[in-house]
Nucleic acid binder design. Sequence first.
DNA 1: AATTGACCGTATTAGTAAAATGGTCAGAAG
DNA 2: CTTCTGACCATTTTACTAATACGGTCAATT
Lengths: 191, 191
Amino acid sequence: MAVVDRRQQVLQAATKSFSLFGYKATTMDQVAKIANVGKGTIYTFFTNKEQLFDEILRDMMTEMKMIAEREIRRDKPFFDNLHRVLDALLEFRSEHELFIKLSQENREFGTPQAQEGLDKIESVVLEYIEREVELAIRQGEIKPCDPKIVSVVMFRLYIVLTAELNKTHTPLDKEQIKDYFRLFLAEGLAQ
Amino acid sequence: MAVVDRRQQVLQAATKSFSLFGYKATTMDQVAKIANVGKGTIYTFFTNKEQLFDEILRDMMTEMKMIAEREIRRDKPFFDNLHRVLDALLEFRSEHELFIKLSQENREFGTPQAQEGLDKIESVVLEYIEREVELAIRQGEIKPCDPKIVSVVMFRLYIVLTAELNKTHTPLDKEQIKDYFRLFLAEGLAQ
DNA sequence: AATTGACCGTATTAGTAAAATGGTCAGAAG
DNA sequence: CTTCTGACCATTTTACTAATACGGTCAATT
């Protein structure tokens, strides 16, 4: 069995366990067991638990970035691109599971590593959105505004529509999420 | 000293303590001391700590409702009223202090009573916004949409602009908050 | 050379005694 | 008699300690 395979096995097992049980409740013994690997093997690829977690987050963000890049057409309007990226991201439930589990762990236990992980994801996503918003402003596609504020609002709107709303409301389907994104961000409520 | 005065003293002292230290860190001995009252006196007006807390929340919500009612002119447009109410509410820092302390307590310690209190406030506010949004839809002032979703989004937008943003951004002043409220809710970003 | 799991020191949890807190009420104050 | 109070009680929370679990290592094994 090649080296890459074992490394990948560990990575997959850890991703599964972090998504299922969160950071704290995931033990290295457990990861080794799921990966069908001796515990020591993990430490030939990753210096420690935190670094393993970090690598998973990095991979997740890389994949999300790839999804976004793949959907963005520079010749198309900003809101077209936004909806296409949104659409593609909404298909990737696996990324969301880890994100949602970390949110939950952070709320319930306040695990610092969960908080740090979420902050890292958020800052990367916000940076990305911010650059796109800046571009859209320069190209006159959207009104002049502070990209920092707009990116935060867009991100929170995404969280509200995909996750928070589900506590009191039946979950929205993909089309509804996109419709409300358009309503609030593009058109506004006013008749 | 009249009965009402003592009751009011207790209420004021408790509000102060809850706002300053949160629910859990507020002891009945402390409230009695601040109010210059024997501990037993508190229990002549309030059955227990939770009920005292509840009454304070109720008072707070009543005052917020009064502020809203005072600003709403039924003959004026929806967004006019929205901005006037927002403006008036943003002036009342005292209400916000308790709200912000409870948010913090909930995040840091997960005190159940803090969570319950916040939920209560949220549900009352959401109900209020929902009714207003329904009315605005019926009068054709805003586009047809689910009032439940719109009220949640409006509430979260308020939280983001007044509180969450301050972690990474210099706090917005009242005018900026109103501007962004208009931008996202009324007009939309699209040129 | 790559892999492993028993092993080590430290961090977390469970268990318990001590302290603090919510709530009561007999008696003091008016 | 009515109002108010703080010492008192039962229960919860905290501080301390012993037991367990965990992250990480490395000599032995494949």
